[in-house]
Design a protein around this nucleic acid. Structure first.
Lengths: 120, 120
DNA sequence: GTCTCAATTGAACAAATGATCATGTATCGA
DNA sequence: TCGATACATGATCATTTGTTCAATTGAGAC
């Protein structure tokens, strides 16, 4: 018996080896996959999606973001901290306020493309 | 008196009213937001991401998908059921096997755009 | 019929997630 | 200095999520 195994699950016998080998090449490296799932996961939450939308090409303070997306200031602050860690937003402090703004060129494009998908 | 608040926390006093009103227009309707978060959430998992990649432009049986993405057949079957419910994949039964294939034009584009983001 | 294989399904579980509340910090005005 | 504000942070909690295991279905082989 030939072993048709390929990288993936060790010892797997592939039923359509040719197609499987071809498909194997379509899988990105694990670093890329991790980065991909990270942005998509970030966009996979309605609240963060709204935060991205209101902060696109416009800076807003935490209070206003909270009012717009319908979440407490604390909640917004938590989410912004995550987005800040991902370098998706930049911020500027002015007095007791902090103004945030989207700082990523691709987020808007991704959302735009997503909208096209939703609209079938 | 009519309520002009579209999304958001009712009764919020906005600090930058002009900017906030402008930002409010950037928020999509709740149906669109829901649809958006649904695809992004679906792409926000490395396993499903890999499944999408191997099933793009190529049909594979569950066994081979499992071998490629490194998950049990059961696990793959569960995920495919979700993706089937979202009408992202189509399937074809042949004997005791089921061949799945990506059936959505935008998924590949979204991933491609995502890769561009990851590559900075 | 029986046996095996591919896939599906349901239950169970740990881990991750998003929100809330309470508290802490820093800034401004009175 | 006192209080109010804008925001940040830590802890907690209820859901949700992804995986695994066990059991089941259905189709071909014998």
């Amino acid at each position: 018996m030939r072993d048709h195994s390929l990288p993936g699950t060790p010892g797997t016998v592939f039923i359509r080896r040719r197609a499987a080998e071809d498909a194997r090449k379509a899988i990105h490296g694990s670093a890329t996959l991790q980065g991909l799932s990270e942005i998509f996961k970030m966009l996979g939450d309605e609240t963060r999606l709204k935060i991205c939308l209101v902060l696109a090409r416009r800076e807003l303070c935490v209070n206003d973001v909270a009012g717009l997306v319908g979440l407490s200031e604390s909640g917004v602050s938590h989410q912004l901290r995550i987005m800040k860690a991902m370098r998706l937003v930049k911020y500027r402090k002015e007095g007791k306020m902090t103004f945030y703004m989207l700082d990523d060129d691709h987020i808007e494009d991704l959302i735009r493309l997503g909208v096209r998908h939703v609209s079938e």
